[in-house]
Amino acid sequence: MSTATGYNFAYLDEQSKRMIRRAILKAVAIPGYQVPFGGREMPLPHGWGTGGMQVTASVIGEADRLKVIDQGADDTTNAVSIRRFFATTAGVETTESTAAASLIQTRHRIPETPLQADQILIYQVPIPEPLRFIEPRETETRKMHALSEYGAMQVKLYEDVARFGHIATSYDYPVMVNNRYMMDPSPIPKFDNPKMNRMPALQLFGAGFEKRIYAVPPYTEVKSLDFDDYPFEVQRWDENCAICGSDHSFLDEVIIDDAGSKMFVCSDTDYCRSRQTNATESATATEETLS
């Protein structure tokens, strides 16, 4: 493991941090709008969370407690790698507990445990532009945002309805923020979209190689796009978590043998573990009461 000698607190130099901090303040003032910023190279590859890392590096302080998740889990390799990076370069305390964290950097999930006021959720974003796959040109999509010209997205979603009888987008599902800007929620499953709405925590989004930062302040309205006759709906499973028994969390499908048998487990490892602990405790309590 490398040491961080010779680098500034949290890796970035102070001038870069100030530039990013100014961009974050603008992002917060214009919810859902993508603020261009002078993205720096980070010592991890682009697309591996450098945008989220630059935001974290600019926000984090000695008093913070950091949690990093990828796919909902604290122990996935990239989450481990990013958590180590900040433990080494900033020397901050890290945690796997959602409730105990002041900053949570995430890729692809929002924790199942509801976030609270004064927590900050930092999303890693690969492609920040929700309209990018409809219109590849930045000059055009900027105009579309300026004019709130979002008809093309409605058409795209409705084509799904015509073809499949459903909106077929299952993750990276576009939202409207504060009834003004269309925003890409990053590739979280649409299961997590409702958690963004009026969340008490501050949500910050960093796209490193696209050099964009955007934000959703606490208690801001975030609405997933839909149609009156085809309302937004989230994924559901027939199964429960094989470990904690949860019937309401997002489940990963795990193939357990060559025959392709599978089981379903919570993607949020901290949530799953805390449910197990609670179950054990209440079981113990029950036993004690009985004995």
Binding site: P45, H46, G47, W48, T50, D70, Q71, G72, T76, T77, N78, R107, H108, R109, P126, S170, Y171, D172, P187, I188, P189, K190, F191, F209, Q235, F250, L251, D252, E253, S267
Partner: peptide, 16 residues
């Protein structure tokens, strides 16, 4: 970076 990031887990999106 972006091409190689496909090597990262995408369990959640794939599950969706």
């Amino acid at each position: 970076g972006f091409v190689s990031h496909l090597k990262l887990p995408h369990y959640v999106d794939f599950q969706s």
